[in-house]
Design a protein around this nucleic acid. Structure first.
Lengths: 229, 229
DNA sequence: ACGTAGACTTGATAAAGATCAAGTTTCGAT
DNA sequence: ATCGAAACTTGATCTTTATCAAGTCTACGT
């Protein structure tokens, strides 16, 4: 990877505090790869070859079992993924595919583990990163076990609105079937749940969702920082 | 805490590789506390005061939302819990209570963070620990999203049998209502699901579960290392 | 040993969610 | 602009899970 492209990656909490030398060691071993949309990046069950960092585009993390498939997360720039598998050198628990054309920075797993062994600042940053991700999954499990599908959707809308700047107008950049899978429901039920939320201040048409009445929506959704982050 | 009690804790992967001096710093600040059964240890939403280590007895990690409660994990000796909250100094996402009389080693959170800052081996061990826990929650979420409640029970039986030594006779040491909550179902449905599994080689009576036909049970359960660990 | 509270089971019913089957809309390719 | 495939919606039905309501069992304290 060329040096002028390093800065955004260097700015990530995971790499911010490590030594210049060790960061260079990671980047020199890494390469930036372009992928078209809907291409498989990694498959659950395989051993990790690379630490992946989404630099551009979006990536779906999903898992299959017994003919079913579910979306576990959708990763956007600039974020690492499958860090836990790389550091433990154990098989991936998730598969990954591009949702859009994407640029992925790929750092050889061995290099990551080597640098991890000699750079204490990197090790400490990794602890913070993993602890944060861990908490994300705790929240996801609570969300799944303690809410109905309509409530999950309502809270997703509130959260997504905040991420998109709080304009109360959300533009979907993924298929609704993907959103349904991420929220743990079928596409059919996402449709019905959206229709249901009309009674709680939500208007939707095509790829747009509009919050007409935040108070009413929040009243129904019962957002909770211990579940929604 | 007295020095003769340190050895089992010192043997944990999390503490094994750190310097003698820093381990002593942790232990000298720590104290071993006895609790009766059914006592609250921590409450979600609070800021962490201590890293907890179950030395004896069993502890339930659970969460509440909107009048509902769900069990997230049951922790047995010798294991740390709420590590992620301690290291990030952020509010607990889970509550904890004793299920039986228990001994808990409590290490002040500040001490843990201090030692973490200066002992690289501890930081690296923490990465491994957190990565492992992270993967546990990924599996839990997959288990929840990709299986029916009866399948979750069937796989729990297979797994618990392995943990108890593969004798095909499981002795429950927790209430069935707790097990139901851990597996994401109501007590009523746990009863019905157990009855259902009679058709797949499982006999149960009171606190005992017997696997009469492992092949039949496995055939129904479809165990998968990417979900069950 | 007895009594009682709580745990467990079982049945009936309701709610939530999935599946099946049309239709309709959207969007990209020609 | 048109066509066709895929995405989306809506309705009907079925499965899964939760809730309500008895009952039975179990374990513990007196």
């Amino acid at each position: 990877m060329r040096q002028q492209d390093w800065s955004t990656v260097r700015a990530l909490p995971l790499f911010r505090d490590m030594s210049e030398e060790n960061f260079a060691a990671l980047m020199n071993a890494a390469f930036l790869q372009r992928f078209p949309a809907h291409v498989s990046l990694i498959a659950e069950g395989d051993l990790p070859d690379f630490l992946h960092i989404v630099v551009e585009g979006s990536v779906e993390l999903f898992a299959r079992h017994d003919g079913q498939e579910t979306t576990l997360d959708i990763v956007r720039p600039v974020t690492t993924f499958i860090l836990a598998a790389v550091i433990r050198d154990e098989v991936y628990l998730k598969s990954a595919r591009t949702l859009s054309p994407a640029q992925i920075l790929m750092v050889p797993a061995r290099t990551v583990r080597e640098v991890f062994g000699r750079d204490a600042a990197f090790a400490r940053a990794m602890v913070n990163e993993l602890a944060d991700r861990y908490r994300g999954f705790v929240r996801a499990l609570k969300n799944e076990k303690l809410r109905t599908s309509t409530e999950r959707l309502a809270n997703w809308i509130l959260q997504e609105d905040r991420h998109q700047g709080g304009t109360r107008t959300i533009a979907l950049d993924i298929d609704k079937r993907k959103l349904a899978s991420r929220l743990g429901m079928t596409p059919e039920n996402l449709s019905r749940n959206l229709a249901q939320l009309a009674a709680h201040g939500v208007r939707s048409s095509g790829r747009g969702i509009e919050i007409k009445d935040v108070a009413a929506l929040a009243d129904f959704a019962k957002p909770n920082t211990l579940l929604d982050g």
